[in-house]
Computed example of a mutant assay.
Amino acid sequence: MAHVLGQNQYGKAETRLVRITRGGTRHEVKDLSVSVALSGDLDDVHLSGSNANCLPTDTAKNTCYAFAKQYGIGSAEEYGIRLARHFVDDVEPIHRARIRIEEYFWDRIRTPGAQGRFIGSEEVGHSFVRRGSEVRTAEVVWDGSALQVVSGLHGLVVMNSTDSEFWGYIKDRYTTLQEAYDRVLATEVTARWRHSFTGAPGQPEPDWDACWAEVRRHLLEAFAETYSYSLQQTLHAMGIRVLDHVPGVDEIRLQLPNKHHFVVDMAPYGLKNENEVFFAADRPYGLIEGTVHREGTVPVIPVD
């Protein structure tokens, strides 16, 4: 029976990279994890062990560092596009490059003013504190002719303490969940959105940082402003809010785990719990996923 080598790729995963831009006394920090995946004329590497067409993964790692030094890191997307184009355009056997980036946020530390009070406090130009669990993401794919850029975030934890219900659902012999007409709705948002930008000649490149901030703002506003009858309804509202307000985005995929908050039964203690004290369960959890895209476009963001 004949065997066929199928789709394959290789690269360097999770290269940790910190770039400090030293502008006098005020420094800027970019903290990234970069994963490179390369595809192309690589059959012989697998079939005969010839490495003639194989760019070492160590070289891919070194390229990440070198590009950070030579060109800086304006945004995760811009940096990813530059890397992807290099691997395809400058390394002959490579026909497709996928760059995945996670960016971790650092905020400046504020210190008391000269009088020892926080009135008139100042930011220290070289001291930072890591910001919570939220991570910015970017994925760039370049095949020599078409560019695909998917921005995103994960670890964005949000909660509505009211304006959420869940009732009218299917009930069978295994259903124990009680209907809720005023519940806590909390989730940890993972979002990925695909830009219409394809890198075609003459097509202006977006302001990646501004676009990312705008999408994040609309996700938060939609979550806060939606009276929710289900997390699915909230997901849809968040998706259409982004597409309605950010014309450069064609598709957004959301993953929303339901971070359940169950009302604690205080009757055994002789107390009445009026929707005030909750048990925050971390697992198992409902996982709500969905894609919202513009009519006439084909969704391409994969389900991970």
Rank of each mutant, 00 (worst) to 15 (best):
L5D: 04
N8G: 06
K12Y: 08
V18S: 15
G23A: 11
V29Q: 02
V34Q: 02
L38D: 01
S48M: 01
S48P: 00
N51G: 05
T63M: 04
A66N: 04
A66Y: 06
G74W: 09
F87Q: 03
D89H: 06
I101C: 06
S121L: 09
E123K: 12
H126K: 10
F128T: 10
R131T: 15
G144D: 05
S145E: 14
A146P: 04
S151R: 02
H154V: 00
G155E: 05
T162Y: 09
D163V: 10
Y169L: 13
Y169D: 15
D172G: 13
E179D: 14
V184K: 03
A186I: 06
T187D: 01
T190Q: 09
F197G: 04
A200H: 04
P206S: 06
E214W: 07
H218N: 07
L219R: 04
F223T: 10
T226M: 03
Y227S: 06
A237Q: 14
M238C: 07
I240N: 07
R241L: 07
V246N: 11
G248Q: 14
V264K: 09
D265S: 05
M266D: 10
E274Q: 15
D282G: 05
G286L: 10
G290H: 02
H293E: 11
G296V: 01
T297M: 01
V298K: 11
V303G: 11
